[in-house]
Design a binder for these strands. Structure first.
Length: 411
DNA sequence: TGTCCACTGGAAGGGAGGGCTT
DNA sequence: AAGCCCTCCCTTCCAGTGGACA
């Protein structure tokens, strides 16, 4: 174990990083390579705001890590600077709808962007909207509202709020104009929108296609130049990160994460170069952290269902059905002296765990033997069991779990 | 060819816990 | 304090459903 002194010194006098922040997901460089076309398009569309006109609403499509958010933020940042220097009133509300996942929270963020203070609960969504409109009517200027990952909102809460926002200008008089940018990685969700919302939001559409491995390499090289000290990266590190990320539909964020975490691992070990093996370790560490984060925040019964899945699948060695999982779950619950949730709920929880990528559940029909889901563990069972055993209420059964899968298939 | 299993997945609603306004 | 409203987790009810089997 290194002494604290040593830890602080190795990090403070990093041999690896020059500016690690340049690899963080929220860092947006001044130039995004391989996205010139898209950025130009968006800039042209939004530029009319500088004349005080309302830009067309824009719909932006593209898979995760294709630069949609970064490009949008970049253009808006520059636009805001330009507006400021020209004395044009421009307001921007950026809302990530996955994090702010209710109509109420979305609406409060929008209201706060024009200076309306709203409590985080207690009001109706309609009231927040009314206050926003009241304030906005007294203002002049252009407002651009970005709804990132908009599909999440619609999936959970329908398109009522979009319908309202799309028509907000009718409530505003003429001095304050609102335009919307919707960002989504799901093309299919657009089909289910109210046709009026669809046509209004889609006044302009921009598609971000995935990066290929060569483009990812360019991006990483550019960023690595700023982030790392010269010469610390082994020559095959960037190609490896790009190749791994390209395999996952050209996700640049993923590639940057790999590179950053690989560097962090090298640094932690006090090594002076980043190698292939650091990248492979980074891959495991990233996945592990994700699993830990997700499982930690699960409600009690979801953890229990997950525990049941771990046991029913023998720590990921076989598949299990919903019925098997439910039986085990019931056992745990009675052992712990808790009340059980219904079958329907367990089925719902299984669906949620699938969405979170902790398990994979395929519905299959076994003919005479009914229709069920075939459930397999998608995550490494070790971190799952670890986190579950940290929950004071259920740690007792987690001990059994640890024994049952035995850590035999650990990393 | 129809039956029937073991579920799925949609819909509606409830109530606890939070916090607002008046 | 009363009266609302919101979110989260959950319940109840129920109409499907793919395909092995008789």
């Amino acid at each position: 174990m290194a002494s604290l002194d040593e830890i602080f010194d190795t990090v403070a006098d990093s041999r690896i990083f020059k500016e690690r922040e340049k690899l963080l997901p929220d860092y947006i460089p001044d130039k995004l390579i391989h996205r010139d076309k898209e950025i130009t398009r968006l800039a042209h569309t939004l530029a009319v705001a500088l004349r005080g006109e309302r830009p067309n609403n824009v719909f932006i499509y593209g898979l995760t890590g294709t630069g949609k958010t970064a490009a949008t933020k970049l253009v808006l940042r520059k636009l805001a600077e330009k507006a400021f220097s020209r004395g044009v009133k421009l307001y921007v509300a950026y809302v990530n709808v996955r994090q702010r996942d209710t109509p109420y929270r979305v609406m409060s963020d929008i209201a706060e962007a024009v200076g309306v203070r709203v409590p985080f609960t207690g009001l109706s969504t309609g009231e927040v909207y009314r206050r926003f409109v009241l304030r906005a009517r007294k203002m002049r200027g252009v407002m651009i509202i970005v709804l990132d990952e908009i599909d999440f909102l619609v999936k959970k809460h329908g398109d009522d709020i979009l319908y309202k926002l799309v028509r907000v200008n009718e409530d505003l008089g003429g001095n304050f104009k609102v335009s919307l940018i919707g960002i989504t990685n799901s093309v299919s969700f657009v089909e289910n929108l109210d046709p009026r919302v669809k046509s209004s939001l889609g006044e302009e559409e921009i598609v971000f296609s995935p990066y290929n491995a060569a483009q990812l390499r360019d991006i990483l090289e550019e960023r690595a130049r700023e982030a790392f000290k010269p010469g610390v990266l082994d020559p095959d590190v960037i190609p490896l990160c790009s190749a791994l990320a390209a395999r996952e539909h050209g996700d640049a964020r993923r590639a940057l994460d790999l590179l950053r975490v690989a560097g962090e691992i090298a640094e932690r070990r006090g090594e002076s170069r980043v190698t292939r093996s650091h990248v492979m370790l980074a891959r495991l560490e990233i996945e592990r952290d994700r699993v830990v984060d997700v499982v930690k925040t699960l409600p009690l019964h979801s953890k229990l269902v997950l525990a049941a899945i771990v046991e029913a699948t023998g720590g990921g060695r076989r598949t299990a059905t919903t019925g098997e999982v439910y039986d085990l779950y019931k056992q745990y619950v009675s052992e712990l002296g808790l009340e059980e949730v219904t079958f329907r709920r367990v089925s719902g929880i299984i669906g949620e765990l699938d969405m979170l990528g902790i398990i994979r559940a395929r519905t299959v029909s076994r003919g005479r033997y009914g229709k069920t889901r075939q459930i397999e563990l998608a995550a490494d069972p070790d971190p799952v069991v670890l986190v579950i055993s940290e929950d004071p209420i259920i740690s007792r059964i987690a001990e059994k779990l640890g024994a049952s899968h035995g850590g035999s298939d650990s990393v």
